[in-house]
């Protein structure tokens, strides 16, 4: 049962308590037209909740995937991803936010936050992984062997430089092209190729070292 009054069913959207002839703007404005990313960003700069929601929901999976790739099953992934969007609000408020390439800005911010977090936790994490303790978040479907293997790869991955981790996350978690990756990282395509090559070579070397231990 719902409250009724005067014979009218009161539903969401009823707005009857406003002054006569003084319509209040709707609580939410629906944008039926397709805005360009620049238009959406411009509206987000005005803190339009619809634009902010559109941006958040469009890019949250992208940022989360990146953070998760860098951090593994660490529960802090959600906090870091949420912090990226809070930083966006702060930046837009101070008019220092992204002008055009929002994705590059978000992933760049995510990269900085992950780096900061890893810097603080690095030694603790390495010693933790050296003990071969499984991550708490491993799914039960993972076979023991596969889980152990992923753990070894995770351990080796975290021993890479932050730039190497960044390029592998963009290429293998986000599956961005060489050009997109170069744009996001602010490097030339040639530099990204070389960085990727060195990252995979280092990953391979670290894995071999672990297998010999």
């Amino acid at each position: 049962m719902v409250y009724r009054a005067g014979g009218h069913c009161l539903g969401v959207g009823d707005k009857v308590y406003l002054a006569e002839g003084k319509a209040l703007k709707p609580r939410s404005t629906f944008y039926h037209r397709m805005d360009s990313p620049e238009q959406t960003l411009a509206r987000a700069r005005q803190k339009d909740p619809n634009a902010l929601t559109a941006i958040h929901d469009r890019y949250y999976p992208v940022v989360y995937r990146y953070v998760r790739y860098r951090m593994g099953d660490d529960p802090v992934c959600e906090d870091i991803t949420a912090e990226v969007f809070l930083r966006l609000i702060k930046a837009l408020h101070r008019n220092i936010g992204p002008e055009r390439d929002l994705r590059a800005w978000l992933l760049g911010t995510a990269s900085h936050l992950v780096n900061d977090h890893l810097r603080a936790k690095y030694r603790q994490r390495l010693s933790h992984l050296d003990g071969h303790e499984p991550d708490a978040g491993l799914s039960p479907e993972d076979s023991v062997e596969r889980a152990w293997q992923r753990q070894e790869v995770r351990s080796a991955f975290l021993a890479l430089t932050v730039d190497q981790q960044h390029v592998l996350a963009l290429r293998f978690a986000e599956e961005y092209s060489l050009e997109e990756t170069a744009h996001i990282m602010g490097k030339t395509i040639g530099a990204v190729k070389t960085l990727q090559f060195r990252a995979l070579a280092a990953l391979r070397r670290l894995l071999e070292e672990k297998s010999k231990q």
Binding site: P61, R65, R150, V153, L168, A169, F172, L200, R204, L207
Partner: peptide, 17 residues
Amino acid sequence: LLEAARYARDLGLSASA
């Protein structure tokens, strides 16, 4: 290197938000 790339790709699996 390509084997390492396969491992690197596997790290990104099952990471839906």
